[in-house]
Design a protein around this nucleic acid. Structure first.
Length: 113
RNA sequence: UAGGAGUGUCGGGUGAUUGCGUUAUUGGAAACAAUACCGAGGAAAGUCCGAACACCUCUUGUACUGCAAAGCACAAGAACAAAGAAAGUCGUUAACGACGACCGAGUAUAAGAAUCAGUAAUCGAGGAAUUGGUUUACUUAUUCCUCAAUUACUGAAUCAAAGCCUAGGGAAAGUGCCACAGAGACUAUACUAACCAACACCUAGUGUUGGUAAAACGUGAAAAGUGAUGUGAGGUACCUGUCAUUUAUGAACAGAUGCUACACAUCUCGCUCUAUGGUGACAUAGAUGCGUGGCAAACCCUUUCUGGUGUAAGAGCAAAUUUGGUAGCUCGCAUGAGCUUAAUGGCAACAUUAAGCCUAGAUAGAUAAUCACCUCCUUCUUGUUUACAAGGAGAAGACAAAAUUCGGCUUACAGACACGUCCUAGAAC
RNA sequence: GCCUCGGUAGCUCAAUGGAUAGAGCAGGAGUGUUCUAAACUCAAGGUUGGGGGUUCGACUCCUCCCCGGGGCA
């Protein structure tokens, strides 16, 4: 799990991010981001029921994505709100392979240093 | 010992690095930092029932305020109706549609039992054919057929265990339904045609009423009120014989067989009553009398029960913006119908007592990510005693994640283990 | 967290507890036409979402699962 200051918590913020954020989508993951005028970046992960009906599989995917974020947290540019979407294709994959895919998508954005 | 049935428990472990949440301690004004402890399940799931807890509504009573209307606090309770639920008995429980024990109804197989059929073998009796012998009608051998018995195997239906299943009040309060078929599906014998009689019209037919026979076979899931057997009377179908003559028919008689809305007797089923046993549902026995179609998971009737809403309940603090309230934050929220062990009571569900223990609390939602080793497991190869040993490869791999909390139910589930409880068969003592 | 509706042929829908589960469209074969279409004829296509029960008999009644839609706060 991420530290509390790196979590995006309020529903209001997420709704505005959905409405105004920029989106980038890869094979097994999607990202939306926007500026938030804070010192730190804030992250959240969304995996809907359409990805899988089993809570076990959804929770595992969320944890894997969070682990990748935590590993690379020093490489992010501060001052952004970011949402990650899980997709069906990313279920039941190794964490190493998932990390490759996520970094590939992140290279398309301006989030990495 | 073998087979079957049943019940219960568990559902990886150790370590390393990097991280998250609650709590505690220390440092700090605070933000925060460091250390330590703890951190998903048997179903956390489905949301099918029930309860705790909270607030609200209404009724009644009491106290206080008020001239009064009324307000407010506390306590007790949820009338009638509507709507819904439950009901075999006794118990357990906070409560339940849950659980336990029992009662009644239903149900099916194993081992086994006796019965029947078929096949094979053996032995016996009888018959036929062939061959040999001679007293020419006896005997020997072989083959075949029939009958009976025994053994083995196979098959059939019957009986048959522990079990399994049960949403089990009332059909003699009433209503409704029971397709097709059938005379008739609950005022049962209809309707049509045929024959006979009476009456009317009127004339050789028509109508009405009554009777006869068809006709209790069959139909159907179910048939008139328990079913079976026997005896008798009558009826009827068919067969045989007698008789008669038109010699292929019946107007009559006798006999056998079958069926039968009749009577009687015996047994059986159910109801009622009595006795005995049981807390009870009921069971057993006896008696005299009686004989009621099925469906209430159709409407309904009887007895009993339920006020409503749900933790997003609700309580508090409180920006922008003064009161109130909104955003937001805190509490509710983890000591509980709690867990473990022991003793006692009880067939059991469970209860009581004693000792010990504290065991998740998140909120875009923590309990993890990455590895190493171990054991369990899967598969292959080699050696050999059917099983074990050695080596190689794969490798925790099932169902599945708290969201106010409990008690149940239901559904999903890789694999492992225990109990020796119950039943059947065999062996030994 | 709670409430509610639905599932029938490839698609859209019917059905009083009574048996062969029906209609339209689509698809198939034929007639038709010089050819295509229209029109006409014919047949095929169903585990009535799944399991269990009540009943003589279940798409229908009861119950447990599965799937899908809608609503409340």
């Amino acid at each position: 799990m991420l530290n509390k200051k790196h979590r995006l918590r309020l529903e209001k913020d997420i709704k505005t991010l959905f409405a105004k954020g920029k989106g980038v989508f890869g094979i097994c993951i999607g990202i939306k981001y926007m500026k938030n005028n804070l010192e730190d970046s804030r992250f959240t992960v969304i995996v809907g029921t359409k990805v899988s009906k089993k809570a076990v599989e959804r929770n595992r995917l969320k944890r894997q994505i969070r682990a990748v974020i935590r590993k690379n947290i020093d490489n992010f540019v501060p001052g952004y709100d970011v949402v990650f979407f899980g997709k069906k294709e990313s279920l039941n994959k190794d964490t190493k392979e998932l990390e490759k895919q996520i970094l590939n998508v992140l290279k398309k954005t301006i989030l990495l240093k």
